[in-house]
Design a protein around this nucleic acid. Structure first.
Lengths: 217, 217
DNA sequence: CCTCCTGTAGTCAAACTTGACTAGCAGATC
DNA sequence: GATCTGCTAGTCAAGTTTGACTACAGGAGG
């Protein structure tokens, strides 16, 4: 398949999709607005690279457009193709379901989770809890010598760290499941979707330190 | 300075240093034995690249040696230079001290932590706890809009995830501090250093039970 | 003796990431 | 009315990572 798990591809696909049609600079601003530069490798170069790459792979459709109305070089606008939409959904589902310790992928997926039906989101999160449980079991089994954990010396602390992180991740996941099952947030097909992108020309509140003016209610 | 924080550089420096003198394949086997391929990007290409790069930067000294006794192409052996040792210590200290959410760097550092004096290890871990506290504070402050956390919608769950992870990391760190202060493990200058994690009777493909002869500081 | 298989040791091109850089236009400054 | 600064939009070279590939030796099987 096309999809090697990558936070950027998911973020970029999701951003373009939310706009319907977007150029690189818009995506870049969205990701900054989402704070993605804090928890993922969402630098300009990576974003433009991802756009070009996915256009080459047929996930995005590139429109060469006229020079920008607001100065600067001519910009290229992108749209998500049918294949890109399928890839987006695959990436999103896999990112929620799989435990790979890469918080950036999970963070991105949480940002888009309301794109799924509520039941499916819960289902995937439960798969995630189960994946963590299985991973934890295999790790503790594999790295526990017969002479007891002391024989590992301080190396055992590495495993301890992993297991601690896994438990914490499972706990957070269970909390999220509970909130979603309790009716929190607005999922696919439940009415007005949450608007998470900046309109063209709108200013990012976080980038400037100005408090958030935009709420949807 | 030379060191952009990278788990591989720390792992490779540490592995070569433990052997005194090692070739790439030995390092590769060490890292696999430590399970580093599970929690870091320790693939063959990355390891050989790190070796060459650090040799070019003067952190390692490369010896072109005769063809291997066990088949395969001629191998290059490496030794850690004085500059490399300094870099190793810098990387190790920074990896323990800094909270950057990259568990691979921390895992590598924990594996080498007994290379430091006990007091310094505790000191660095306390700095880590403090760094996490500061990071948590800045994140919660920066991303909490005045209308309350509800206005963020499901996006708030991303911050929730970060904060949860940070709290879990702090808790693990405090636990480790307590164990170390309680006398666990053998640190620098406290006698026989801990060597490897080989299970009883299991043979290792690289089998070097012998620590540095007299060259510990 | 010849072929295949395994283990050793490392190389390489392609992909990805990074941070610095270019270049156009608008409004402010002098 | 020339220059300076800042925003828009993106490019580029250098560095890093990836996974597949090469090449060599010894032993098993025929």
């Amino acid at each position: 398949m096309l999809g090697v798990m990558s936070a950027i591809r998911l973020l970029v696909l999701g951003a373009v999709r939310m706009h319907g049609r977007a150029h690189g600079y818009q995506v870049r601003n969205d990701l900054e607005y989402w704070g993605a530069h804090e928890w993922s490798n969402a630098k300009p170069g990576s974003i433009y690279h991802a756009l070009k790459q996915m256009a080459k792979q047929g996930l995005l459709l590139a429109h060469e457009t006229a020079p920008s109305t607001a100065g600067g070089p001519p910009r290229t606008e992108y749209e998500v193709t049918d294949e890109g939409l399928a890839e987006y959904r695959t990436l999103l589902r896999d990112a929620i379901r799989a435990y790979d310790q890469n918080t950036d992928v999970l963070s991105a997926a949480v940002g888009f989770i309301v794109d799924l039906p509520r039941e499916e989101a819960v289902e995937l999160l439960k798969e995630r809890v189960e994946a963590i449980r299985g991973w934890r079991e295999s790790v503790t089994e594999y790295y526990t010598p017969e002479e007891g954990p002391e024989s590992l010396g301080h190396i055992g602390e590495i495993m301890n760290l992993w297991v601690h992180s896994a438990d914490s991740g499972a706990e957070w996941t269970r909390g999220l499941i509970a909130r979603i099952e309790g009716g929190a947030y607005t999922f696919a097909g439940e009415g007005e979707p949450f608007v998470g992108v900046l309109a063209d020309g709108e200013e990012s509140p976080y980038a400037t330190g100005v408090p958030d003016p935009g709420d949807r209610d």
